[in-house]
Computed example of a mutant assay.
Amino acid sequence: MGKILIIGAAGQLGQCIKTVAERRSITNIIFPSEQSANILDLALLNELFAKEQPKYVINCAAYTAVDKAEDDIELAKAINETGAAHLAEVCKANDATLIHVSTDFVFEGNTVKLLKEDDEAKPINVYGQTKLDGELAIVDILQSHIIIRTSWLYSEYANNFVKTMLKLGADRDELNIIADQVGTPTYAIDLANAIFDMIEADSKVYGTYHYSNEGVTSWFDFAKAIFDISETKVKVNPIPGSAYPTRATRPSFSVMDKSKIKSTFNITIPYWRDSLVACIEKIKGLEG
């Protein structure tokens, strides 16, 4: 398989990759600290690659604060575009394959249809634009790349919608949740497994792929499922996005077509609610 280097190891997906690597007994894998793998420092990256000589690099590092990015444009651009370009350059110089995680937010999401990899990307917020610019930089620099667009990531690690809902549900009697933004939740453990499946296939079918769990839901129905599964008693009211204005505009429909990744790598994707059950069990286990 060759050595695997994880960039952004401390984040949610990085932690899930570590967990899955342990479960799959993958030992030839490096999780450097943020200090030694700063994607904005090209000299540092060159040192790291010279020392570790990875065959695969998984980039989990990203600026993901969607609303904050509207005002923090330079930093979002630096991490999501310049950082991605740096990794592509260093991978090219060291003959490594880059697996880069991107987002459904590269799409406008104003039509009800499954989004394919070659559909027009037209971001409607700064975060989405910087992630798209990062994708374009990688495509321009490095042939041996795999870009995986995912959506609504959650897990037992870090801060995410599931953990926020569990906390709010325990503290409040009633919650208002947006019902007119539709997409697919993705359990980051499932995404980590899919990434390892792609690496193990060693098929060199480079390009862009979509991965989320199967199915379609709204934030409101997602929250309802979280409370049903966790047996949390809280009243949930559906509201339109217009009733909860945010700094950044979100796509109203961003359900992705996953047929390409399934057929290319023979990957089976779990249904979102089944994965949510597994995640909530893990969260309860960690709390217990």
Score class of each variant (00 low, 15 high):
M1D: 02
K3M: 01
I6F: 10
I7Y: 06
I7P: 04
L13A: 01
G14R: 09
C16G: 00
K18T: 01
A21S: 13
N28E: 14
I30M: 05
P32Y: 03
S33P: 13
S36E: 12
A37H: 02
A37N: 04
L40A: 12
L42W: 00
A43M: 02
A43T: 15
P54D: 02
K55H: 04
Y56M: 03
V57P: 01
I58A: 02
N59E: 01
Y63N: 06
A65F: 06
V66F: 03
K68N: 03
E70V: 11
D71R: 13
I73V: 14
K77M: 09
I79S: 08
G83E: 01
E89V: 04
K92I: 02
A93T: 03
N94W: 05
N94V: 02
A96I: 10
A96R: 02
L98P: 07
H100M: 09
H100C: 10
T103K: 07
D104G: 15
V106T: 11
G109F: 10
N110A: 14
L114V: 12
E120T: 13
K122N: 14
V126T: 15
Y127N: 09
T130S: 14
K131P: 15
L132F: 05
L132S: 09
L132I: 07
A137Q: 07
I138K: 03
L142V: 14
H145Q: 11
H145K: 12
I146Y: 11
I147H: 01
N160V: 03
F161D: 04
V162W: 13
V162G: 05
L166V: 14
L166F: 10
E174K: 14
I177F: 12
I177S: 08
I177Y: 08
A179D: 15
D180N: 14
Y187K: 08
N193L: 11
A194K: 00
F196W: 11
M198N: 04
E200H: 09
K204N: 12
V205R: 07
T208E: 03
H210S: 05
S212M: 05
S212V: 04
E214C: 08
W219E: 02
W219N: 12
F222M: 09
I226T: 06
I226G: 04
F227T: 05
F227N: 03
T232A: 07
K235N: 08
K235M: 13
N237F: 08
G241K: 14
P245R: 05
T246S: 03
T246E: 00
T249W: 04
T249L: 10
P251R: 05
N266A: 13
W272K: 10
S275N: 07
S275V: 11
V277Q: 15
C279E: 12
I283E: 07
K284R: 13
G285L: 09
G288M: 05
